[in-house]
């Protein structure tokens, strides 16, 4: 958390993937054309969000065992950063959809369920703000978080596959892997995912450290 080396790796990966995201060659695809490059920017947002929410649920479980306030702070700060990632993912998705699927919001199943998943986590933050007593807030929101996480996973990865979706990899549509995520694109896509996940984790550690300092200041 305090080391510098992985932050440099994160920076290098993100800059590398951005440069090559613009400059690398891409397969010739109907409809998508050059916009397939959005894969390097839109999808890592979602992967980052899922990793941050996983961190959050890990600390929520830990909190229920330990009862330590720092675990609760970790859980809420990773949700905060994850929600920012998710909103960026949904907005970039809408922009991409506007010019490929024809409408910003075409009520595609995965779009709808992604929005509901975000609402689930908004509810988590609202629930927290509604409870004044610190330990009660931490405990109730930890339990809520543990329920919200599997529902989010089901909404994003299970239900869209059961019906027709415009997203690749859902409802009988083959995923990108099947035809167009060729090895050139993988060389950019995987570093992009890792880089953006690490950046998200970094922002979460910064937020966590700020909150810890604030708490110390209040109690001092």
């Amino acid at each position: 958390m305090y080391k510098t080396w992985w932050k440099i790796i994160a920076s290098v990966l993100v800059i590398y993937s951005t440069v090559w995201g613009f400059l690398s060659s891409t397969p010739q695809l109907p409809i998508l054309h050059e916009s397939i490059r959005n894969l390097y920017f839109h999808v890592p947002m979602w992967f980052g969000m899922i990793v941050l929410f996983s961190i959050s649920v890990f600390y929520s479980v830990k909190y229920l065992g330990s009862g330590k306030a720092e675990d609760d702070i970790r859980a809420v700060e990773s949700v905060n950063v994850g929600i920012v990632y998710g909103m960026l993912g949904i907005v970039t998705g809408a922009i991409w959809a506007r010019f490929t699927w024809g409408q910003a919001w075409s009520f595609d199943v995965k779009q709808n369920f992604a929005a509901i998943a975000l609402l689930l986590y908004f509810a988590y933050l609202i629930l927290r703000n509604a409870i004044d007593e610190e330990q009660k807030r931490a405990k109730i929101s930890a339990i809520y978080n543990i329920f919200a996480f599997p529902i989010m996973v089901v909404l994003l990865f299970v239900l869209p596959r059961l019906s027709d979706s415009l997203h690749p990899g859902n409802g009988g549509n083959p995923g990108f892997n099947a035809y167009d995520l060729d090895s050139r694109m993988r060389m950019v896509f995987y570093p992009a995912c890792l880089g953006w996940i690490l950046i998200g984790y970094w922002i979460y550690t910064l937020k966590y450290r700020i909150r810890t300092l604030e708490k110390k200041q209040i109690s001092a």
Binding site: Y2, K7, S11, W202, L206, L213
Partner: peptide, 12 residues
């Protein structure tokens, strides 16, 4: 990224 690094430094 520079902004993140400087924030990290000040926090330290």
């Amino acid at each position: 990224i520079f902004f993140l690094f400087s924030m990290d430094r000040r926090l330290k």
